[in-house]
Every structure is written in structure tokens, then in C-alpha cells.
Amino acid sequence: MEKVYKMQSRNLQVFYQNFQALQGINMDIEENKVTALIGPSGCGKSTFLRSLNRLNELIEGTTTKGQVYLDRQAVYTNEVNVVELRKSVGMVFQKPSVFPMSIYENVAYGPRIHGITKKNRLDDIVEKSLKSANLWKEVSNRLNSPAARLSGGQQQRLVIARVLAVDPEVILMDEPASALDPISTARLEELIAELKSNYSIVIVTHNMQQAARISDYTGFFLNGDLVEFNNTADIFVNPRDKRTEDYITGRFG
């Protein structure tokens, strides 16, 4: 079967003022797979992730060169509607950032701003999204209570439900488990494995075991460069680059 690439980057360079954070990244992100990005802090993983849905633009003084493609459509052009792009390419952040609203309102927020107002439509979306995020059973009897009262792991799954509610195709995750305890992390990893069948997932992680457990492909970033990108099994068992080997064996970083 031929590989289908959901997103691709070509010679992607990102500058924060004079600092070049990405040195021309070429990467192919396969559909319905989990792609993990690993590497030391400040080496461009998150920058790369945030450039896939043009969220870097929020930081003043950022310039982007090169191109990103979603389904072979260029993302960095004036004609592209950023709102539509971000609907298709959802994002989960490091800290579970639930809005100070009820559980229901958190999930309904996305569909609402995209024009869905009918109560029963919203109810359906909320239920479906919470079910897909493995959270429905825990919260179905208290949808109207404040989301902030949920545990950290539940909050992160709520954030994922909120992303699912706008019906994305790609989900970007920026160290989604770094603020979670081991049990919540395990549940999150299970969830990622389930979501893979419907979504393409790109995940930044500092946890190498996590990358090895959940991803199909792994990219190793160092100083704004993509040093190595390959099947996860190959990267961890048989790294081609010395620097990759040093990193995954814990010799630096």
C-alpha cells in the first residue's frame, strides 16, 4: 500500500527576530500514524509543531520561510484561511488549559464559534467528543460543573475532546503528558493509540520511552535541525546518526 502523506514540510525555516529556530526542515507526516518529535529543550520541536497550524504567527517578530502542505495544499499563502487551517489541524498544549467554564461549555466552545447553535446538535457533538476522548463515563453526570474541578489527567482528556469537537484531521500535541502522573499518562497514551485510526497525530515528547511506545515515526531535532527521521523502531534500535544514538542512550540532553 502506498503511503499517504497528510502533512509535509519543505525547507521550513522559522526565525524569531534574528534567531533562526528551524534550519530548513523537510518532513513527511503520514496519515493515521503517530509521529513523535524528540530532542533536547529549545531545539525547535515545538516551533516545528506550532508552524504546522501557523500558531507561531502569534509571537511577534516571527518570520517563516519554506512551505508546509496539508493534503498537498500549501499552508503558507495569503489565500489560506487560518481559521479553516486550525479547524483541520488541532492542537493540545503542555499544560491542560481548560477554559474557566463548565465541562460542557469547554467542548461546545469550538463548534459554537464555528456557527453551530442548535442545542441537540451541540449535545451530540459534546457526547461524541467526550466518548472519543475516553472521558464520557467519568463526567456524563456532571457536564455542567466547572472544568477546573477535574483532575489534571481528566483536564487533558477534556482538552482533547475540545479539539475533537471541531472535527480536525491532524492533532498536534506539545508534551501533553508532561504535567500528568504515570497513571494519567498511561490513559493518555491509550487514547492516542485509539485516536490514530481516525486522525494523524504529531506529538512532541521529552520522554523517549513514550515516543518508543506510541509512535510509528520519530524525528530527532537538534539545534533547529531534523537530524534523523525514520520508523520509530529503526531510530531506537538502529540509529543512523551518531548524535541520535548519543541522545537516545542518554549521553546528552
Binding site: 497550524n53 500558531l55 502569534l58 481559521v83 479553516e84 487551517l85 486550525r86 479547524k87 488541532g90 492542537m91 498544549f93 499544560k95 488549559s97 477554559f99 474557566p100 467554564m101 466552545y109 469550538g110 459554537r112 464559534i113 464555528h114 482538552v159 475540545r162 479539539v163 471541531v166
Partner: peptide, 25 residues
């Protein structure tokens, strides 16, 4: 700031983010 990024990442416009997330918060 996370509220703002999260809302924008969901495809909300800047004004929607102000109106429905930042001001209520």
C-alpha cells in the same frame, strides 16, 4: 496565555477569543 492560544488553535478569531474566553475569564 494558554487560554488565548488554545482558543486560537481551535480556529477562533481574535475577537471571538476576546469575547468568549478572555473577557469571561
Amino acid at each position: 496565555n494558554d487560554y488565548k492560544s488554545s482558543s486560537l488553535a481551535l480556529g477562533a478569531t481574535h475577537f471571538q477569543t476576546i469575547r468568549y474566553v478572555i473577557v469571561p475569564a
